[in-house]
């Protein structure tokens, strides 16, 4: 059997301890193949953000095993997980999280700086990524001069500029109007298909989940259902 890109094996996560302890994840099993587009849905408190943080190697599970490309992530150090994020994972946040005062281009270059790319390569990679999200003419604009949709496109460009294998999007359309939301979703689907990048996205809107190839529903820290999108 070929190892999937991502495999969660009986993952649990408990916050706090003693009587105030809160069990966010109660034993999640999940496999995502390379090239998939998975939407994770669930009510607030269902554990979808916790699952996303663990998938993004930002957090470690209380128990269970997380395999990313066959590597057991829960056994890695903080720095090793950072290096793993740097090389293989791109993040898109609900609040865009662009660095203010920096131009769109500089924001997109940021992950390449941490990868030690020389300036000329940084610039050409970043311009290519901006072109992919259709924002090449806006490269020199400060991030706070852009509209919400444009900002999210810059954030997506920043996430894909390192050619990651997995794109994690946490409610990427949560701060956008519906028309812009559809544009962003179409962009994500395009990238998923064009670059064969695996996309895992949290959303609570069924319309957005419809862009994914499969939908995972979480409820009370457990996978309730996994289905192919309509």
């Amino acid at each position: 059997m070929v190892e999937p890109l991502v495999r969660l094996d009986k993952i649990t996560k408990v916050f706090g301890d003693g009587p105030t302890a809160f069990q966010a994840l109660r034993g999640i099993d999940l496999a995502v193949e390379g090239g998939d587009f998975v939407a994770i849905m669930g009510a607030s408190g269902s554990g979808k953000s916790t699952a996303m943080n663990i998938l993004g190697c930002l957090d470690t599970p209380t128990s269970g095993r997380y395999f990313f490309k066959g590597v057991e992530v829960q056994a890695l150090t903080r720095d090793q997980r950072a290096l793993l994020r740097r090389r293989y994972i791109g993040f898109v946040f609900q609040g865009f999280n662009l660095l203010p005062r920096m131009s769109a281009l500089e924001n997109v270059e940021l992950p390449l700086i941490y990868r030690g790319e020389p300036a000329a390569r940084r610039k050409s990679f970043a311009m290519a990524a901006l072109a992919q999200v259709g924002l090449e003419p806006w490269a020199s604009h400060k991030s706070n001069e852009l509209s919400g949709g444009q900002q999210q496109r810059v954030a997506i460009a920043r996430a894909i500029v390192t050619r990651p294998q997995m794109l994690l999007a946490d409610e990427p359309t949560g701060n956008l109007d519906s028309e812009t939301s559809f544009e962003i979703m179409r962009l994500l689907r395009e990238l998923n298909r064009g670059l064969a990048v695996t996309v895992i996205m949290i959303t609570h809107e069924a319309e957005m989940a419809a862009f994914a190839s499969s939908v995972v529903r979480l409820r009370d820290g457990l996978v309730e259902q996994r289905e192919l999108a309509s």
């Binding site: 993004g56 930002l58 950072a82 793993l84 740097r86 999280n97 940021l110 992950p111």
Partner: peptide, 8 residues
């Protein structure tokens, strides 16, 4: 953000 995108 820096830490998330892989800064040590």
């Amino acid at each position: 953000t820096r830490l998330a995108i892989g800064a040590l």
